[in-house]
Nucleic acid binder design. Sequence first.
DNA 1: CGTGAAAATTTGCGGAT
DNA 2: ATCCGCAAATTTTCACG
Lengths: 152, 152
Amino acid sequence: MDELDAAILRELQSDARKTNRDVAAAVGISPTTALERTRALRARGVIRGARLDLDLAAIGRGVQALVAVRIRPPSRDVIESFRDWAAALPQTLGVFVTSGSEDFILHVAVGSNDDLYAFVIDELTLRREVADVRTSIVYEHLQNRSVLPVGR
Amino acid sequence: MDELDAAILRELQSDARKTNRDVAAAVGISPTTALERTRALRARGVIRGARLDLDLAAIGRGVQALVAVRIRPPSRDVIESFRDWAAALPQTLGVFVTSGSEDFILHVAVGSNDDLYAFVIDELTLRREVADVRTSIVYEHLQNRSVLPVGR
DNA sequence: CGTGAAAATTTGCGGAT
DNA sequence: ATCCGCAAATTTTCACG
């Protein structure tokens, strides 16, 4: 994990579909070396894959929310089964398993406020382990394009 | 936005670096048509780009947290300037601008608990508009690989 | 880590349904 | 209007130094 690897990650984070040739040119090495490094990063698990960045509003999922959920009892079995259930829901973008006063924060995207309401009261609260739910609408979700290694 | 577009998005979400040829084969159309559709989706803004999925622990950022922040006063100027500042921090993965009892939820990744503590007390609370901070450690963050259009 | 050649993919154009 | 086949241009990929 040297300076060269970091530079390759920086390039691919700006656009994960950048061609190997472009990455090599930007970093200042040959395409072959860039390819070898990138493959090694993938083999070592540093690069897990590439995700599409979609306009959620354009696909009819323009309403986002964070739903804090408290689970009772918070035993391993109950936590893990709720986690897997929540992560597989079509409304779910992501699931944070957290410490603090809540056990989960669900990041969901739905089509409308009605869909959100239905999600919370028809799906979530029907589960017996759900002791408490607190919903916050997400007005905006910004994501950082560059997540660099080590200390900044 | 028909069934074909949805199928293409489904394929590219499973791996945003999939070749156009593979996408076409999986969807059952010619590479030419697949390319044309994919470009149209990009031109219409449905596809915004592709992001790398990194193993944060492998780049020395293995400690994640959600930091709920309350801002005073919550006027547009103050909100927007805090938002832009927070989104640009190297520790920040994402910024949620929310309704509810907090104004922001910051998703951050740092190297250690010490770094997290330093982030919160040395960076966040130094800003005068930050009225309240509540930090939750993220034990695990699952993300959904398939975000499908419309009503599931 | 680079060079050069071979294989695979992307991509634009003309034509078919 | 949408989709496909073909061939050129670009890119990936590998054996070798």
